[in-house]
């Protein structure tokens, strides 16, 4: 079995992505890593936490650490004022909620449309992306889930 994060090795093999949007950009998350899609409600901010961490929220009795994909990608805060959607990701027995502007359909894509990460991409993005799928009208950046969650833990508070 291929690693869920890895793009399909063989030409012709397909891979399913949950698509999410942040501003105008379209991203794909390997479907095997996505446990949930939910609307984040009443996020409790965590003082002194890394900037990527929006806070903690209650997902059916579980405490989920909410991460902002915008901040993770170094983008400006959303201007729409809407709280967006959250995608539940699991890592090391913990659940994280990735806050995005919107969640779209699930796409089944083949290797044919896959390209490696263009070298002129922002270094931060290059670390977080596995590659790019050429869609008819847009480009879909495939996100590397483990890299997304591998942000720096909170610095020791002064």
């Amino acid at each position: 079995m291929t690693h869920p994060d890895q793009p399909p090795a063989m030409s012709g093999a397909t891979h399913d992505y949950v698509t999410v949007t942040v501003g105008e950009a379209l991203f794909g998350l390997p479907i095997a890593r996505v446990h949930d899609v939910f609307k984040p409600a009443s996020v409790t901010p965590v003082p002194l936490a890394p900037p990527e961490v929006v806070g903690l929220l209650n997902l059916r009795g579980r405490v989920v650490t909410a991460l902002c994909l915008r901040r993770r990608l170094g983008l400006a805060p959303s201007t729409s004022g809407e709280s967006g959607m959250a995608v539940g990701l699991e890592q090391g027995g913990e659940t994280f909620g990735l806050i995005v502007d919107g969640v779209g359909e699930v796409l089944r894509l083949t290797r044919d449309s896959f390209e490696p990460v263009p070298p002129n991409l922002d270094a931060r993005w290059r670390r977080l992306a596995l590659g790019v799928h050429r869609l008819d009208t847009k480009l879909l950046v495939v996100l590397h889930v483990d890299a997304l969650l591998a942000f720096e833990p909170a610095a020791q508070a002064a």
Binding site: T44, V46, V63, G92, P153, A154
Partner: peptide, 20 residues
Amino acid sequence: AKLRSIPLFAGNTILGDGTV
């Protein structure tokens, strides 16, 4: 695990009204 290094917090909990 990402937040454990903040020495001011011992953990978190969910209150009766569902807030963390």
